[in-house]
Amino acid sequence: MSQSIVLPKFLEVGEGAKSATGDIARQLGCKRVLIISDPIMKTLGHVENLQAIVTKADIQSDIFTDTIPEPTEASILPAVTKAIEGNYDGIIALGGGSVIDSAKAIALLAQYKGRIRDHSVPNVVTLPIMPLIAIPTTAGTGSEVTKVTIITDETNDEKLLCMGPGLIPAAAIIDFELSMTAPERITADTGIDALTHAVEAYVSGKSGLFTDQQALLAMKLIAPNLREAVNNPDNKHAKEQMMLGATLAGIAFSNASVALVHGMSRPIGAHFHVPHGMSNAMLLPTVTEYSIPAAKARYAECARAMGVVELSTSDDAAVDALLIELKAINRDLSVPSLSEFGIDKQEFWSNLDIMSEQALASGSPNNNPRVPDKETMIELYKAVW
C-alpha cells in the first residue's frame, strides 16, 4: 500500500538559517507579511531581528504577538481580522508549537473565513492556506512541517483538530540558535513531545517505509541529547541534534499520524490546561506498556534506535529496557504525575467519560497498535493519575 507524503515547499536547515527568511518570502511571492509571535520572543528581540531581515528583502511587515499557550479560537480571531483588513499576502510564524499552530489557524481563517469548527475533523483542509513560513524556536512540536493544527473551543474546552495537506506551511526554517534561550521546562516538555511523535509515528497503523526512516532517525537524534539539552542549555551540539530530530519526527507523524498517547493527551490539555508536551510525557510510559503486546517488535526497534539497548538485544529485553528508560526520562526531567500537577482528583474522575469520548472522536487512538474501547481508556487515565 502506498503512503502519501506532504512536505513544505522550502526547508532551510542549520545555524543562521533564519537569515534566509526574506529571500524565501520573496520566492513565495510575498510583498506584505504579518509576523505572528508571542510576548517572550518580542521581549528577547527575536521579532525585531526578524522584521529587520524581512525589511532587508524589501518586504513590508507588521506584527501580532498576543498569541497564547494552548491557543483558543478567541485568541486568534484578532489576528485573523488584522490579516484580512491589512491585505497581507503571507504569514510568518516565529515561536513554539502554540505560535505556529495559531499561525496556521490564522492563515486558514484569513483565507477561507468561517470558524475553526467549520474546518475541523472530520473535515479535511485540502486547499492551501495563506502562504506561511514557520520558524520554530523550540525543539518539539514539529508543527513547522505538519499538516495539523489544534485550537481549543473555549466554550466547551474541546480541542479541535484541523488537518489536511492545505495546512502544511509553505516553508520551514530550522535554526537551532533560536532554541538556545528556551527555558528548561519548555525544553524538557517539547523534547519528550518530539520523542513521542517519533515513537507513535513508528508504531502507527499508518506507518510506511518513508516515515519509518524519519521516525527512527529522530529517535536516534533526540534520545541521547534530551537530558543534555535540558541540563546544559548552552550545548549547541545537543540543541542542534534536538532541533533536527524534532523536525524529522514532525515529518514522520504528519504523514503517518500519531496514536493513543496524543489522542488521550489533547483532552487533558483542554480540560486541565496541562502543557501538551507534559501531558504526552505523563501518558507515554503507561500507554506504551499497554500497547507493547500488539507491536513488540516495533517497540523493540524504538529501544534500539534510542540507544537504550544494543542492536543484538532480544525483543523482550528491549521492550523492558524501553519502559525503564521512558520512566527514567520523566523522573530525570521532573515530569509530574497528574496528581502532582495539582489537578483535583474528584474533578479529574468526573471528566473521565467526556475525555475518553473526545479522545476516541479525534481518531488518533485508531492508529494505535492496540486500540482501546472507552472503558479501557478510562482505566488508562486512572492508571496515569
Rank of each mutant, 00 (worst) to 15 (best):
E85R: 13
S279T: 13
V13Y: 07
L380H: 07
S356H: 07
D66W: 07
S102E: 02
F348D: 08
I5Y: 01
P372L: 03
E357N: 14
L34N: 10
L283N: 00
M264C: 02
E375V: 12
I268W: 13
L352F: 11
E177C: 14
S356A: 15
I76S: 09
T313D: 09
A103K: 05
I84V: 15
G90D: 03
A300C: 01
T211S: 04
A383S: 15
F10M: 10
Q214G: 08
A321T: 01
P293Y: 01
G14M: 03
V54C: 05
I53R: 06
I106G: 08
D89T: 11
T138P: 03
F176C: 12
G14E: 02
S37T: 05
N87T: 12
E228S: 15
N368R: 08
A249Y: 02
K374L: 11
A383I: 04
A270Q: 08
M1E: 15
Q51W: 03
N49W: 08
R227H: 10
I59P: 02
G277F: 13
L127R: 13
L322R: 09
K31E: 15
S143T: 14
V13H: 00
A300Y: 01
P39E: 06
D38R: 03
A171W: 01
R227I: 13
T43N: 13
K42H: 12
I36T: 09
Y202V: 14
A361W: 09
W349P: 09
I174M: 07
W385S: 15
D193W: 06
D316K: 02
I116S: 02
L322G: 00
D23Y: 13
H276S: 08
K104T: 05
T141K: 01
E340D: 15
G90N: 10
K206Y: 07
T313G: 06
I324W: 08
T313I: 02
S291L: 06
V124E: 12
M264L: 00
P39Y: 00
L221F: 11
T286S: 13
M243Q: 14
G307V: 09
L326S: 03
K345T: 11
I116Q: 09
K382T: 06
I174W: 06
L216S: 12
Y88I: 07
L108S: 04
A83P: 10
P365E: 08
T196G: 12
A318D: 09
G307P: 05
D66H: 11
F348K: 03
G22S: 05
Q358V: 10
E375K: 10
T196H: 06
V80K: 15
A188V: 09
I222R: 05
V99T: 15
S204V: 00
I192P: 03
E347G: 10
L244R: 06
P224A: 00
E301P: 04
I91N: 05
